[in-house]
Design a protein around this nucleic acid. Structure first.
Length: 469
RNA sequence: CGGGGAGUGGCGCAGUGGUAGCGCACCUGCUUUGGGGGCAGGCGGUCGGGAGUUCGAAUCUCCCCUCCCCGACCA
């Protein structure tokens, strides 16, 4: 019996489909204040998996976690001119507290450069203190005019790294290392989303940075989503916050800095990069639940078999759940797990219990196979690897078939309406304005071989152009 | 913040001045359970908020709030 679709089909209305997934997969709800978000347990479990993977990579890159205050004195923010100009439109400012007007207003952090740098100035004295590599997991507030759950909310969760280095070279190398070894590695190998890594144009650069690098992924509607950024700050903030150190030769010098972050926006990326008309499809390496054992009916010992199967899979290192809610119909539960994008479903009922088998269903292809219970753990772990690979290959195929090399600005502008375009870039003139008129932007600049440029003035660069979130 | 659309039970909707309705969900019972089952009986809404017009407002007027789409700004 054909039922009405669970979700609005992507082809019919992509934004609507996105909202449907967020609601039906129980990822998040709107908060009561415009732009705020309630992250529900399943959505938060996905974020926790992202955090765990990212945190390990961040620590491997030598940075340590710390925590700084939510409230920043307004005067701190105002010290770096470009920085305050960039952020002032979206600041939430506390002017009253404790029942009276504050002497100095406190800004709810939109990012923590100014707060952290005030302490870096205290802590950095000598070249022996460098490099100083910190990371913080925090919530931040940027008053958004057009919120969308996960993609752009007024309050969101993220990770922000802040570092000080003795030399420009060292700082630049570190910013690129984070981009490649933390962000790109995580997004490609765990989230299974291919990206273009590149340099932001001045117009897209972080307020106060010398250079901003980013990774850009293609979503299911062929629009681009920035999935992580890493900034070279030069000595801009060090100068205004007085972060100085004594060199080996006894000279006083300003520290060279970086900052970098990824946010809960990645959950939005996950939805849009892999989701289909059946709901979410979570890559196994990311999935908080990699496999679910679905007990069809507790007869002929099926219940015991299912519990044992769950135990065996857990023992094999699979993140597995047992769904033994036999008072809820089978079809309903199957749809529920599909919506949540759990990679592998193991259906076990009386027939299987008698035959000593179990049905394996892949979420990515919907392929179903019946296999003997003995040795099923090995089959499941192999399947998880296959699904990880399939999801990545599908995402690569979509990106590649929708990325075209353009010979002219007009051609690039036109192609970017339907996907990504690449165009030889000279940086001068009004090219970016002309692209903006068509609703598309330069997502990043790359060298011809895909490498990362040192500056926007480098010759021989290519622009990746697209509509963007 | 500009333009457009919309707020009626948890969700989706009907209801153009006269006693608030429908479908799904939810609860109870029976029956079912291998892809959103069936039957029967129930619970649940001061119609986004406020003010006004009127004998009477979900419905008309004004103000505000929220959500969605497009645009400018951004992770």
């Amino acid at each position: 019996m054909a039922k009405a679709p669970v979700l609005t089909p992507q082809a019919e209305d992509f934004p609507r489909w996105y909202q449907d997934v967020v609601a039906k997969a129980e990822l998040a709800d709107n908060g009561p204040v415009r732009g705020t978000m309630v992250i529900r347990p399943y959505g938060y479990a996905i974020w926790e998996r992202m955090q765990a993977e990212l945190d390990r990579r961040i620590k491997d890159a030598g940075a340590a976690n710390a925590y700084f205050p939510l409230f920043i004195p307004q005067s701190y923010l105002e010290r770096e001119q470009e920085h305050v100009e960039g952020f002032s439109p979206e600041l939430a400012v506390v002017t009253h507290a404790g029942g009276k007007k504050l002497e100095e207003a406190a800004v709810v952090r939109p990012t923590s450069e100014t707060m952290i740098d005030a302490y870096f100035a205290k802590w950095v004295q000598s070249y022996r203190d460098l490099p100083l590599l910190l990371n913080q997991w925090a919530n931040i507030v940027r008053w958004e005019l057009r919120p969308r759950l996960f993609l752009r909310t007024t309050e969101f969760l993220w990770q922000e790294g802040h570092t000080c280095h003795a030399t420009d070279t060292d700082a630049r190398a570190y910013a690129l290392r984070i981009l490649r070894e933390v962000y790109e590695d995580f997004v490609v190998n765990v989230m299974a989303v291919p990206v273009f890594a590149g340099l932001k144009t001045d117009r897209e650069k972080f307020a106060g940075a010398v250079a901003s690098y980013a990774i850009e992924g293609m979503m299911g509607d062929r629009k681009a989503l920035q999935m992580g950024t890493s900034h070279v700050l030069g000595q801009n903030f060090a100068r205004v916050f007085g972060i100085t150190y004594l060199t080996e030769s006894g000279d006083q010098e300003f520290a060279w800095q970086t900052s970098w972050g990824v946010s809960t926006r990645l959950v939005g990326a996950l939805i849009m990069a892999h989701g289909d008309d059946g709901g979410l499809r979570v890559p196994p390496r990311l999935a908080p639940v990699q496999a679910v054992v679905l007990l069809v009916r507790d007869e002929d010992g099926a219940g015991e078999r299912a519990a044992a199967l769950r135990h065996e899979l857990a023992g094999a290192g699979v993140r597995v759940e047992l769904d033994a809610r036999v008072d809820v119909t089978f079809g309903r539960r199957a749809v529920e797990w599909e919506l949540k994008g759990v990679p592998v479903r193991l259906e076990l009922g009386p027939r299987d219990a008698t035959a000593g088998t179990v049905s394996l269903v892949r979420r990515d292809t919907t392929a179903k196979e019946t296999v003997p219970l003995a040795g099923v753990a090995g089959r499941v772990t192999a399947l998880l690897d296959e699904i990880q690979t399939t999801l990545y290959e599908q995402a690569v195929a979509r990106r590649d078939t929708n990325t075209v090399d353009a010979e002219s600005l007009d051609a690039a502008r036109d192609a970017a309406q339907r996907g990504f375009s690449r165009l030889a870039w000279d940086g001068s003139g009004d090219a970016e304005d002309r692209l903006a008129e068509a609703g598309v932007t330069v997502r990043c600049l790359q060298r011809a071989d895909g490498g990362l440029p040192e500056s926007v003035d480098e010759s021989g660069l290519f622009a990746v152009i697209a509509r963007a979130y």
